[in-house]
Design a protein around this nucleic acid. Structure first.
Length: 273
DNA sequence: CCGGGCCTGCGG
DNA sequence: CCGCAGGCCCGG
C-alpha cells in the first residue's frame, strides 16, 4: 500500500526526527526481516550516525557514517513508528534503539517488508534498487514520454513496472489513468503524443497531490508519529466502486487489470486500442 | 508476459 | 470459511 507519496511522507518526517541520531541496539523479533542477519548488522551499526534520510522509489534510505546504508521497504503493511509510552504496536518485527534512548519500531502484519544493511557500493545490488527506473518526479516530460513511447503493452501494467519509472503503485496508477481519460486496460501504443504528455502531467499531479496530503490511509498507512494520511479524501476513482464519478455522475466500476483491483469511470475512461 | 507465492486480517 | 487486499520476485 505505501507508494511513492506515502514513503516520501515517512522520509520527510524521519529527516526531521532521525538525522543526527546514533544507533545503539537492534532488537529483532523476526530475523528473516533483515539482510544480513540482525546480529551482523548490529555489530557494524552500533555507534554509527544517521547523516540523512532519503527516498528511492518506495525504498527508505538511511544515509550513515562510513559510507554505510540502512534501507527499509514497507511492501504492503510495513510501518516505521517512533515508540510511544502509551499504545503498543502489534506485529513488531524489529526495534532500532538509538544512543539517546529513543526507539524506532518496524512493524509489519504480513511480513513482506524487509530491511537491508550494507555499504554504499553493495546496497543497490542486495536491495534490487539497481533494477529501478528513474524517479518520476525528477524526470523531464521528454524523458518520461520517451520511456513509454518505446514500449508496448497494457497501460496500467506499464505504470506499475518499477524498472520503467519507479514508485507508482496500484492506487496512483488508477488515479493517473482517470486523469488522462483512459481505461487502465488501454494499449500503450494507442497513446498519441498529446496523450503521452497528459500521462506525464497526470503522473506529476497525482504524486505531488499525494505528497501534499501526506499520503493515502485506507487501512494500514500511518506516519512515524501515527498520523493518518489525508489523500484518500481526494481520490477520484480508487476505492469508489458504486459511487458517482465527480465529473459525469456515472457509477465507478471495479475490474481486474494487471492482477489487481482496478477502479475506473466507464464514461470518462474509454479503452484506447 | 502472465500468474502464483509470500503472509495475515478481515469482509462477505 | 473462503477469497481478497497488492508490494515485488520468480518460474514457466
Amino acid at each position: 500500500m505505501p507508494e511513492l507519496p506515502e514513503v516520501e511522507t515517512i522520509v520527510r518526517e524521519l529527516r526531521k526526527s532521525a538525522v543526527g541520531k546514533k544507533f545503539w541496539d537492534i532488537e529483532s523479533k523476526l530475523d528473516s526481516t533483515f539482510t544480513p542477519d540482525p546480529q551482523t548488522i548490529l555489530s557494524k551499526i552500533r555507534g554509527v550516525r544517521i547523516l540523512d534520510v532519503t527516498r528511492r522509489a518506495k525504498f527508505i534510505v538511511f544515509v550513515l557514517d562510513q559510507k554505510l546504508r540502512l534501507v527499509v521497504h514497507l511492501r504492503m503493511t510495513g510501518r516505521l513508528m517512533w515508540k510511544k509510552v502509551r499504545g503498543r504496536e502489534k506485529h513488531i518485527r524489529g526495534v532500532f534503539v538509538f544512543s539517546d534512548a529513543k526507539s524506532l519500531i518496524f512493524s509489519d502484519t504480513r511480513k513482506f517488508g524487509h530491511i537491508w544493511f550494507g555499504t554504499e557500493k553493495e546496497i543497490d545490488k542486495i536491495t534490487g534498487m539497481e533494477r529501478l527506473g528513474p524517479e518520476p518526479l525528477s524526470m523531464s516530460e521528454k524523458d518520461f514520454c520517451l520511456v513509454y513511447e518505446r514500449k508496448n503493452g497494457i497501460l496500467k501494467n506499464s505504470l506499475l513496472r518499477q524498472d520503467l519509472v519507479a514508485g507508482i503503485g496500484n492506487i496512483y496508477a488508477d488515479e493517473i489513468c482517470y486523469r488522462i481519460g483512459a481505461h487502465p486496460s488501454s494499449r500503450l501504443e494507442a497513446l498519441n503524443e498529446s496523450k503521452l504528455k497528459a500521462l506525464y502531467e497526470a503522473t506529476q499531479h497525482c504524486l505531488h497531490q499525494g505528497i501534499e496530503h501526506c499520503g493515502v490511509t485506507l487501512s494500514d498507512f500511518v506516519g512515524t508519529r501515527g498520523t493518518l494520511g489525508k489523500h484518500q479524501k481526494y481520490l477520484k476513482v480508487y476505492g469508489r466502486m458504486g459511487d458517482a464519478c465527480y465529473e459525469c455522475g456515472t457509477i465507478i466500476k471495479k475490474t481486474r487489470v494487471a492482477g489487481r483491483g482496478t477502479f475506473y469511470c466507464p464514461k470518462c475512461q474509454p479503452v484506447l486500442a
